[in-house]
Nucleic acid binder design. Sequence first.
DNA 1: CACGCTTGTTCAATCCACTGAACAACCACC
DNA 2: GGTGGTTGTTCAGTGGATTGAACAAGCGTG
Lengths: 265, 265
Amino acid sequence: MADSRTPRSSEGLGSSSPAPAVTRAAAVLDALAEAPSGRLTLSDLSRELGIPKSSTSNLLMALEEARLITREGADFSLGRKLVELGAAYLSRLDEVQEFYKFCEQAPTLSGETVRIAMIDGDHIIYLARYEGHPAVRLTSNIGDKMPLSLSAVGKVLLAQLHDHDIEAMFPDDVELPVMTPKSLRSAAELKAQVAAIRKQGYALEDEESTLGVVCLAVPVPTHGAHGPSLGLSVTALKATFSEEQAALMVKELKELAHSLGNPMG
Amino acid sequence: MADSRTPRSSEGLGSSSPAPAVTRAAAVLDALAEAPSGRLTLSDLSRELGIPKSSTSNLLMALEEARLITREGADFSLGRKLVELGAAYLSRLDEVQEFYKFCEQAPTLSGETVRIAMIDGDHIIYLARYEGHPAVRLTSNIGDKMPLSLSAVGKVLLAQLHDHDIEAMFPDDVELPVMTPKSLRSAAELKAQVAAIRKQGYALEDEESTLGVVCLAVPVPTHGAHGPSLGLSVTALKATFSEEQAALMVKELKELAHSLGNPMG
DNA sequence: CACGCTTGTTCAATCCACTGAACAACCACC
DNA sequence: GGTGGTTGTTCAGTGGATTGAACAAGCGTG
């Protein structure tokens, strides 16, 4: 590691936050979350974020006192309080509770792997997972992120946005992340799919993120302000995937989406 | 609640953090997490935390920019990034991954509801849940907290601590939280149980948090520094709970605990 | 409608958190 | 042991974040 890791900031004062210490503290949390090992030393952080060591030390002490991070010898890592806070966020989403109930009772979905996700910047983030099918256990977990272009939920949520927003996120010469030979390569492909999704009302992901696995997704209608867009998806093995089954799943997903979108039931 | 909510701080400079803005930002997150509705306005926060409105405004703007909180009109609530960060924390715990694998293959446990928890101040916090028994779905979720004295895991983790630490947390005249008629009432009762747990190597919670539900728990041996103590528990309905079954469960829990405590396998 | 009481945002003066350099402790290598 | 590179901590000066008061906008109530 001669030239070490890429310092991400170096713009530093570009934003000029009204409370720089907080912004930097958040950057520390991000850095720890993205670090492969999950552990960084004071110097690592200072270097990577371009913050003087002395200031970094102060930040870390404050973060540790708040239990947002943990110190173990010279290494810092994320703290348990983050799990609490994340859980507090999720527990407030009534949609998640109803999601579980619905899945258990749905004729087809109750035997499948169903997930609910939310758009989060240029990614989606999984909020909950129902597993009626213990045979197929997903590697993805609650809180995991996926690029929009690589998941059925991502595409279906993208299709909900206005065209100019999509254009801003995916200019024609953008390079899309690729995970399998079937992953979408160009913005044009993506936009064509978006158009199709808008017509048919659901999205299909056909081995674009994992070979052998297909995914169907529908959007949850956002009745007014409330919050950011939610999406639902079913995951299945391509081998055991039929047209009729897909139709059933989409039908039930849409029912669930409708009941999530109209809270009274 | 005529006199409204209790302003929690008012000690203010007691701690004198090296980065007050960060400490206060953390307090904001805590307040939002504990607020019953999950939403507070700028003035609410300013009042409750004893921070001037103008400063609170700055904090909130910085927190919002970091997506640690979300603004909806005048209301602020926790942000999605917290789910990411919490998930990042959990994904680093190898124990959680192994926990799932083990549960699936264990003869008895694979059909039960098993959880792994961690001590967190004067509470426990649930890190993961395996549900082999869809009939009995727990209301508790990942990230939820429970008082030490009210859960089997809590008691078993308490038993791992030194006596003087226990004494500090539970002086003789302490008032324990009560959730059912069978909840422990006095520190003396709790300490008697701790002694018993140390002898037998596992803890039993007999309808102390929920009527009709029993819980068994064992500690995960912490091989040296690593991290805070972990505990495992099985939850069952009292109605369908037998001595022989309990013995089997404790045996498998101990196997799991052992394999978690000795990472190589 | 005017009133009282909220709310959140603006702005200049002050104070304190941030910084940089100097420090001590450590490790690896020769 | 000496030496060059680390590491994290300490501390006094200073520049910018914090703040209080003043502002504007909203909302019930009589």
